[in-house]
Simulated scan of single mutants.
Amino acid sequence: MSDSNLPHVTVAAVIERDGRFLLVEEHTPQGLRLNNPAGHLEAGEDLLHAVTRETLEETAHAFRPTALLGVYQSHGTRRGAPVHYVRFAFTGELGAHDPSRALDHGIVRTLWMSLEELRASRERHRSPSVLQCALDHAGGRRWPLDMLHGDAAVQQGKP
């Protein structure tokens, strides 16, 4: 199997407060899209560190994952080629906001949307997982973090 056929592992934070979900609006090749704070797992990084880092980079908020929401698969394109994504979505506690921190490249703003607003804006979602993650969160899905395992080298951030 060539590297181009390997799945891209991503992480996402699904954060709900008072019936509204934290999203980012970001520039993509398809135009402005809505997404959960999310991004790619980097070499030598565990999933929990990745989702914490991505949330901080995209929202300027600290994040502490408390549960695995689910694992989602989707297909898309990247640079004109088909891509298979595997998304690990987490829920947790949103921490302090750092107003001096610039948002990651491509992120236009953060916003809070209700489930109804998410349903009504499907055509603007970066992937079908955005709505599905919110629906699963609203439905009470939660898996304990101790079901995730990595060898000691991954836990220490070593490739």
Rank of each mutant, 00 (worst) to 15 (best):
H61S: 03
E123Y: 07
T55K: 02
R122F: 02
R79D: 14
V71H: 09
L56W: 10
K158W: 10
G31V: 03
P159L: 11
D151V: 08
F88G: 01
F63P: 01
Q132S: 10
G157E: 07
S121H: 10
T66E: 12
G150R: 11
A102S: 15
H84P: 00
P128Q: 11
R142M: 04
T66Y: 09
G19C: 10
V9W: 12
A96C: 00
A50L: 02
T10G: 13
Q155H: 12
R141N: 05
A134P: 08
D151A: 02
S129G: 06
N35Q: 11
V24Y: 04
D151Q: 05
E16C: 07
S4N: 10
E54G: 00
E45G: 02
S114M: 05
H105F: 15
L94R: 10
G76Q: 08
G92H: 03
R33M: 15
L111T: 12
R79Y: 11
I15G: 01
H125W: 05
E57Q: 06
G140W: 05
R142L: 08
A43D: 13
L41K: 07
L148M: 13
R109S: 14
F63G: 00
P144Y: 02
A67D: 12
R78I: 09
H75K: 07
P65T: 07
P99C: 08
Q73C: 01
S127C: 02
L118I: 06
D3L: 15
T10P: 00
Q30K: 15
N5Q: 15
E93M: 04
R109F: 09
S129A: 14
E54A: 04
A81P: 01
H84L: 12
N36T: 09
R101Y: 07
D146F: 08
D46R: 04
N35W: 01
L103A: 10
D18H: 09
W112H: 11
R101M: 08
H105T: 12
S114T: 15
G39A: 02
A138P: 06
V154Y: 01
L131N: 03
L131I: 04
D136N: 04
R87N: 12
V130D: 02
E54M: 05
H105Q: 14
M113C: 08
A13S: 14
I107W: 10
R141Q: 11
T66D: 06
P29C: 06
S74Y: 00
R79S: 13
L47I: 05
L6I: 01
V24E: 10
F90G: 05
R126I: 10
L56K: 09
L48D: 09
L47N: 02
A120L: 08
F63W: 03
E42A: 13
A152K: 04
R33Q: 15
V108E: 14
R79F: 14
Q132F: 06
R124M: 10
V11R: 04
E57A: 02
P65A: 04
H97E: 03
V71D: 07
R79N: 14
T66F: 09
R142F: 02
H105N: 13
L145M: 06
D98Y: 09
A13Q: 05
V14G: 00
G92K: 02
C133A: 14
F21E: 06
W112Q: 09
R119E: 15
R122I: 07
